[in-house]
């Protein structure tokens, strides 16, 4: 997750108002979800890919690494759509042992539509994730009146992901230097120990964070300054309605 966040904070359009980026991402997302033409979805994917790599200067490898990890799940899922397995033969079916694999033009077309629809949608959200820090997204969510308590939970959860991940790394190391994870059995024991410890640590840390927040005058709402953003004229004209 850290490698994603590093690019989020260092890309070329980091300072662009998040409404523009979110607007673009959701526009592409909606087009991909509504269209039944996989070519349009593919064009959306290519367009987003180009914007991410050329405009935002996110390295190609980063974008591909992210999309491939999502695409691998997607590929497995659409196999089930493209290929149906039966015990009975039918026209154009392939025999594998006692089973028959049916692949029809309609099922392949449906699989392609779903595949590119999901790929285009994932690429649109990846664009947003890779170019917009969470703090900016939280700002945007507040602007569109997402309830404060939900945003406070998001802020704390996001922070705790990294804090607990650091703890997890230390715990794994502590197990390894005492021969944890050395074989299958000890690995399971180590995982169980770490899970239990991490849960306790999460509780203790949340209690201490609560004390620290109280010490800083917390009154139930996490009030923070809004970040400053860039508003290029072209974007103002295009999406002026979205930005207050």
């Amino acid at each position: 997750m850290r490698w994603i966040e590093q690019h989020t904070y260092s890309n070329r359009i980091r300072k662009l108002h998040p409404a523009y980026k979110a607007g673009l991402a959701f526009l592409v997302l909606i087009v991909c979800l509504l269209t039944t033409n996989y070519f349009i979805s593919f064009i959306c994917f290519v367009g987003i890919f180009a914007l991410t790599v050329i405009w935002a200067r996110i390295p190609i490898t980063v974008f591909l690494k992210l999309i491939l990890s999502e695409g691998s799940f997607l590929f497995i899922a659409i196999l089930g759509v493209a290929v149906s397995v039966t015990f009975h033969p039918s026209i154009g079916a392939y025999r594998v042992g006692n089973l028959w694999l049916n692949i029809t033009a309609a099922s392949v077309n449906l699989a392609l539509v779903i595949f590119f629809r999901a790929l285009g949608s994932a690429a649109a959200l990846n664009f947003l994730i890779l170019t917009t820090p969470v703090s900016d997204l939280i700002y945007l969510a507040r602007k569109v009146h997402v309830p404060e308590f939900l945003m406070d939970i998001v802020i704390i959860m996001y922070r705790f992901i990294f804090v607990l991940y650091d703890s997890l790394e230390r715990m794994v190391l502590a197990q390894q230097i005492r021969l944890g994870f050395s074989n299958f059995k000890s690995s399971w024991r180590s995982i169980a120990n770490i899970a239990a410890q991490l849960f306790i640590e999460a509780l203790q840390r949340s209690r201490r964070l609560n004390l620290a927040l109280q010490g800083r005058g917390w009154d139930g709402t996490l009030k923070v300054l809004n970040p400053r953003f860039e508003h290029p004229l072209l974007f103002r004209l295009l999406w002026g309605m979205l930005v207050k």
Partner: peptide, 16 residues
């Protein structure tokens, strides 16, 4: 780590 809660330094400092 038990005192910093916000995603960015600027926001965390502004809290108090």
């Amino acid at each position: 780590d038990e005192q910093l809660f916000s995603a960015s330094v600027l926001q965390d400092l502004s809290f108090g």
